[in-house]
């Protein structure tokens, strides 16, 4: 990407992010009622979106070649176990990252 293409990409991200933050305040200035469908989306969308983001992170994993995604799956296991055990976001993330870095740098 050229510099101007990068700036356009960043600009699109800023614009979309600001749109999501300002939209409700533009649509519902005072006590205007929020439609049921929007309230419903607010409740169920996050679970699905975070699921999608987990898959997004793993999109470049190749199961048939290279390390077969083994470091990824072991490290995700570490994150899950740490998080169920301590439920401290920073510990779970740090533990998973350290595990992954050790695996890819020393064993795979």
């Amino acid at each position: 990407m050229t510099l101007s293409q990068q700036m356009i990409t960043i600009g699109c991200i800023v614009l979309a992010t600001m749109l999501t933050r300002f939209l409700p305040f533009l649509l519902y200035p005072e006590h205007k009622k929020v439609p049921d469908y929007i309230v419903y989306l607010g409740q169920v969308l996050p679970g699905a979106i975070f699921g999608m983001l987990v898959i997004y992170c793993l999109k470049d994993v190749r199961l048939l070649t290279g390390s077969h995604g083994i470091p990824e799956f072991i490290s995700i296991g570490v994150v899950v176990i740490l998080h169920l055990w301590k439920r401290q976001m920073l510990i779970s993330i740090a533990g998973g990252v350290i595990c992954f870095m050790v695996l890819v740098q020393m064993f795979f």
């Binding site: 979309a16 999501t20 300002f22 939209l23 409700p24 519902y28 969308l45 979106i49």
Partner: peptide
């Protein structure tokens, strides 16, 4: 850029509900 825009929109869609 269109994908960047829509990804940011979807990833940050939850902010709409914070806003509400």
């Amino acid at each position: 850029p269109l994908q960047a825009f829509f990804m940011a929109l979807m990833i940050n869609a939850r902010h709409i509900f914070y806003g509400i």
